[in-house]
Nucleic acid binder design. Structure first.
Lengths: 253, 253
DNA sequence: CGAATTCTTGAGTTTCCTCAAACGATGTGG
DNA sequence: CCACATCGTTTGAGGAAACTCAAGAATTCG
C-alpha cells in the first residue's frame, strides 16, 4: 500500500463522509458525489481555544462554521454595550448564519469551551449549492431550523415567568445533548449563570435562585456547572406553567 | 393593436416587473430574464379579508407569501392555547418562511387588515432558484433578513423594560413604514393593543399605559390606532434606556 | 495554596401584572 | 336616527414577581 493511498484514507476518514455530526449538519443526507464536492471546500476540524471568537460584530460574511466538539454562543452587543446571548451552539449546529441578510455579522461567535469547528467559505458554499440542487435544499432546511430555534427562544421570553424559562432551558438542553449522542440527564453546562441569564432575559441571581429551587424540589441535582435531571416529567410540568408542588421535598409520580 | 397584446401589457404591468414592492421582496434586484421566469410562477395580487389566515399551524409548506397591501401577523399557539405574536408583516415582506425548517408551518399567518398578497408555490420557487443562481442568492438574502428581524425582536424582549420596548416598537414601525414609502411620523396601527402586548411580552394594560405616558411626555400623539410621532429623537432616547424627563410636559431639545 | 472568578443567599425596592371598572368607538336592529 | 350591544381601550388599586445592591460561600485556576 502506497503512502498516498494511506493518506487518502486518512483524509477520507477525517472528511464529511465519516463525520459524526453529519446527520446533524446535513439532515436528510445527500448523495456521495455531492458529499465529495462539499468535502473539497470544507476546512476541517480547526481547534478553537476557549473564549476565542470565530467572527466579530461587523465582520463581512466570509464563512459559516459547524461546531464539532465543544460549545459556542452567539452574542450581540447592544448600543449601550450590554451583551445579549442570542443562542448556544452544540456539535452539529451551524454558526454564523446571522450575516446572511446583510452580508455582515450582527453578532459574535464565541467559544465557551475548548472546541473544534469545520469552516465552509461562504462564496464557495453558495456556488456549490447553485450547482447541486439537493445541497441547496439542505441549506434552506438547515437555515430554517436555525429560524425555528430563534422562534423557540422567543417563545421562552414572551410572557413566561422565571422558573418556567429555566425549566424549559434545562429540558431543551437535555434534548439537544441527546441528539448529539450524550446523556440527556447528566451533563456539564458549558456556559456561566450570567450567559444563561442573558439568554433567558433574567438577572443572574434569578437564574441561580431558580436552580436552587429546582434542586430543593428534587427535580434536578446541581453543583456548579454539573447538572443532573432527576425528574424529567416534573421538569416539563414546571416548564409549562405548573406550580411547583408545595412541600420543599422530592416528590414521586 | 390586437386584443392579445393589450392583455399582455396589462399582464406585464401587473407582474413583478412593475411591482411597487419589488425592491423590497427582491432587494438588490435580478435580471429581467430571471424576473420573467419568476413572473410565471407567482400568483398575483390575491385579495385577503381581515382576519383570514394564509396558513394554519401544522399546514405543510405549500407556498410563501409576499404582502402587497395591508398588514399581517405571524402567531404561534403555545400548548396552553396562548397566542404569541412572532412578527408583523408590512408590504414587501415575506410570510411563511417559518415552515422552511420542518416542512410544516409552526405558526399561523393572519391578515390584520383587508390586504392583498402574492403567492409563490414553494416547490416551483426552489426549482427556479436552483436554475437561477442570482435568485438563489436573493432568497438566502431575504431569508437572512427575516432572521435579522427575529433577532431584533429578541433584542427587544431580553432585559428591556416596558417603556423601552414600546418606544423601540413605535420607532421601528415608523422606519418600516418609511421603507414602504409611507410617512414614518404619522400612521395607523394595523394591530390591536393586545397584539402589541403579545409581541412585546407585556400585558395589554402595560402597553396602553406606555402609550399614555409617551403622550403625556409630548413624544407622541395617539388616539386609538392613529399614532403621530412628535419627537423622534426623544423616542429614540427612551428606546435606549433613558429616563423620561421628569416634568410631565413636552420638552424641546 | 492563595487569588480570582463564579455562584449562592439575603433584604429591600421597583416594576409590572392581575383584577376590576369605566369609557369610547363602532355597528346593528328597532 | 337613536338606543343598545359589543369590542377595544384607558385608568385605578393592590399585590406578586423579579430586580438591585450587598455580602458571603464555593470553584477554578495559576
Amino acid at each position: 500500500m502506497s503512502d498516498s493511498s494511506v493518506l487518502d484514507l486518512i483524509q477520507l476518514r477525517r472528511g464529511c463522509t465519516y463525520c459524526s455530526v453529519r446527520q446533524l449538519c446535513l439532515p436528510g443526507g445527500i448523495g456521495s458525489d455531492e458529499l465529495q464536492r462539499l468535502d473539497q471546500i470544507v476546512q476541517r476540524r480547526r481547534p478553537v481555544a476557549r473564549g476565542e471568537r470565530l467572527f466579530r460584530l461587523g465582520d463581512p460574511l466570509a464563512a459559516v462554521f459547524i461546531a464539532r466538539d465543544g460549545a459556542f454562543k452567539s452574542v450581540s452587543i447592544s448600543e449601550d454595550g450590554e451583551e445579549q446571548v442570542l443562542g448556544f451552539h452544540l456539535p452539529g449546529e451551524l454558526i454564523g448564519l446571522d450575516a446572511l441578510g446583510s452580508g455582515q455579522h450582527r453578532c459574535e461567535g464565541v467559544a465557551l469551551t475548548a472546541a473544534t469547528v469545520c469552516e465552509v467559505p461562504y462564496d464557495q458554499l453558495s456556488e456549490v449549492a447553485a450547482q447541486v440542487p439537493s445541497l441547496q435544499q439542505q441549506l434552506f432546511r438547515v437555515i430554517g431550523q436555525s429560524v425555528d430555534r430563534d422562534q423557540d427562544h422567543l417563545g421562552i421570553l414572551v410572557r413566561r415567568q422565571a422558573n418556567e424559562r429555566i425549566a424549559l432551558f434545562l429540558h431543551s438542553l437535555g434534548e439537544r445533548y441527546r441528539n448529539v449522542g450524550q446523556s440527556d440527564r447528566l451533563f456539564q453546562l458549558p456556559m456561566s449563570r450570567e450567559d444563561i441569564a442573558r439568554f433567558l432575559g433574567l438577572a443572574l441571581e434569578t437564574v441561580s435562585r431558580g436552580f436552587t429551587r429546582l434542586q430543593d424540589d428534587g427535580v434536578i441535582d446541581v453543583t456548579g456547572r454539573r447538572v443532573e435531571i432527576l425528574n424529567v416529567a416534573e421538569l416539563l410540568r414546571l416548564a409549562h406553567g405548573a406550580e411547583s408542588s408545595g412541600d420543599g421535598k422530592q416528590r414521586r409520580a
